[in-house]
Design a protein around this nucleic acid. Sequence first.
DNA 1: TCCCAGGTGTCGA
DNA 2: TCGACACATGGG
Length: 301
Amino acid sequence: MAPPHISIQIPYPKTFDFDQCLFYLDRGYDECLYEIRAGKLTAAIEREGNIYLFTLSKKGSSLYLQINQGQRTPNLDKALREHITKWFDLGRDLTAFYELLFAEKTCASLAQQYHGLHLMGIPDMFEALCWSIIGQQINLQFAYRLKRRLVERYGRSIRYEGKSWYVFPHPSKLKHADPTELKHMQFSRQKITYLLALAKAFDSGTISTQHLTALSSHEAKQRFLTQHKGIGIWTANYVLMKTIRESDSIPYGDSGLVQALKNFKVIQDKREHEKTNAFFRPYVGWQSYLSFYLWRSLYDA
DNA sequence: TCCCAGGTGTCGA
DNA sequence: TCGACACATGGG
């Protein structure tokens, strides 16, 4: 175990506010892959077959990452740094986005209320796709419960101070999951079919982040994803936004997005597609961020 | 009981 | 291409 005083420093851009991000991560759902307590984030991560536990906190103008469990190596330091940078989108400065919000006026309050909130990603594409499928057409509370059952049954874990810390199940493990068992865990037949097919596709290499990022256009990426059963346009856009951080990936039709647009009086009905498009048009380059901020606004509505 | 929730697939016009 | 509908389950 690494001595507790050893920690990795991770710098962040001036538009970043750790507390805003922690608030988003800790919205009161039964999250099973990390824990937030007293301004610190603790989570497990799997690298090169080993599971490590780390805690992330803020001191001054840097984030500090402490490894609680697992042997520390230079490779691990680098991997953790990359993981946090991807998860919190630390490579991005939001100044231009805030200028746009102020210029467009309709949602200018977002720039003030959530200043420093970065788009919280899901770096692992398999996890992002599974999570999208789990969450389709059910309420988030139930979706989190299903995720917990899946993770605790098929995910690897590490013990630390009397508690198990899980990482998301690996495709090679999930592809062998028993459909009957998943049914007992309250997964619908559709979700079971989609999840098992997805696990097989990842395990065989049919779907991979490398394949996806190699495609040239947003449309090509959408097509690549939506040819798989269970992945529709909403899921494709959600994953492109959360995993490879496409800047203009709007999850059209999303019920939360529709609600937020109604709250801001942009639309009155979800079928007002042209009004929605016109609203998003000036935000090219930041449409994913705008969608994310609109989701965030729902928790204060 | 009814409607909705961070949808998707299928079918028929 | 588009709308209607089935799927599936919990919460308000």
